[in-house]
Simulated scan of single mutants.
Amino acid sequence: MLHLQSIAKYLPGPPIHSAELEARMGWPAGWIEKNSGVETRYHASPTDSVIGMGAQALSSALAQADLGPGDLDLLLFAAGSIDYPIPHSACLLKAELGWTQYDFPAFDVDATCLSFLNGLEVAAAFIESGRYARVAIVTSELPSRSLNPEDRKTYSLFGDGAVAAIVGRSQIDRPTDTYFVNYAEGAKLAMLPAGGNAMRLNHRQNPEADYYFQMKGRHLLKLTFKHLDQFIASVEARFGRSIRDYARIIPHQASRLGMDMFIKRFGLPGGQVQLNLPRYGNCIAASIPLGLCDAVVEEGLPPGSEVILMGTAAGLSMGAITLEV
């Protein structure tokens, strides 16, 4: 089973309160918290970058564990945000940190909001096979630059942030429990149309809205809850226990409505479910590890506790994985 050896976060600048954002955008006072539940979020400055934020988080995670780059066997960059399409972000992260003398492998894992979980799944496969002993996973998200100011629902919901985790093998001698599924009827319910070969950025005849993130939130929520009961039943059957049996449930923070429906539908105690949407907003793949970081570092979740990380992603994908902290 995977064991969390260290975790640290990086948040760009001071928090932006919803009242401040409403005043700046000319929106009605109180609209954001009423509709999205987000009280504060962080937006990167013009000098911040995906790689720069990730490097800050990784440096902190290594220092926390008294480790250096020579102690790593693999670096995974697991996020939906990028600074450049080519090269991949993991190698840029090594370069940013000045690790040019270290040749351990580095590559990216992108499953939008589930990227961190899929990164953990990749790490578990390598570690439990005995190929690697210690893996760093960095998730750095900067959605604020891809949001349309005219789309009040998305512009007020998302935030920026980065998290780095160092994982290794637990003393619990069993495989890491993982379960991931995809329902392709939701493939285009959340997307950023421009930027790939289907819609090149230099084709300026494209509609302006296609250069920003687009999400059909209610359609996504409806599709999620169409499949959620079966997904949770499959997770519990495969993992051999109820989701209520874990020390903490750390879900993706997609929306307040989605979180409220999830907790109510499965009768979960409020204190067992990690809630950080009001504090950070939806930080894409960084939402889940931000919750994990807060539970471990700020709230002092006891060492040896087993947690379950779970969520949804554009696609529509769902996933869950367990971890010992």
Rank of each mutant, 00 (worst) to 15 (best):
F77W: 02
A136G: 08
C293E: 13
H219K: 15
V50D: 04
H219D: 15
S45V: 07
V181K: 08
G319D: 01
L72W: 00
Q253L: 10
S140V: 06
A313G: 10
R200P: 11
L147H: 03
S59F: 05
L2F: 02
S317D: 06
V50N: 09
N282K: 05
L220K: 04
N197K: 14
T224Q: 07
F116N: 01
Y246T: 03
I127M: 07
A164C: 09
V122T: 14
G267N: 01
V122S: 10
T100K: 14
N202G: 12
A29Q: 14
V167Q: 04
G311W: 02
F158P: 03
P149N: 08
L192D: 09
A285W: 02
R41L: 13
A190I: 12
S49W: 05
S60C: 11
G159C: 10
L189T: 09
F225G: 02
T47A: 14
G258N: 15
R204I: 15
A63D: 12
G270W: 06
P105H: 04
G68T: 13
G319P: 05
C283V: 15
L92I: 08
S242D: 09
M191P: 09
L223F: 03
L11F: 05
I250G: 02
L228K: 06
T178I: 12
S242N: 09
H227W: 06
Y132D: 11
D245E: 14
G271E: 14
P207A: 12
Q230R: 15
A136M: 08
V181C: 12
G195N: 03
A295K: 01
F239E: 05
L58Y: 03
E185F: 08
L4R: 00
V296F: 00
L192V: 14
Q230T: 14
S140Y: 01
A313T: 02
G80A: 13
D108W: 00
G240Q: 10
T47I: 13
L11V: 05
P85G: 08
E22P: 09
Q214P: 05
S287L: 04
I16W: 06
H17V: 10
Q253R: 11
I86D: 15
S6K: 04
L290G: 01
A198M: 12
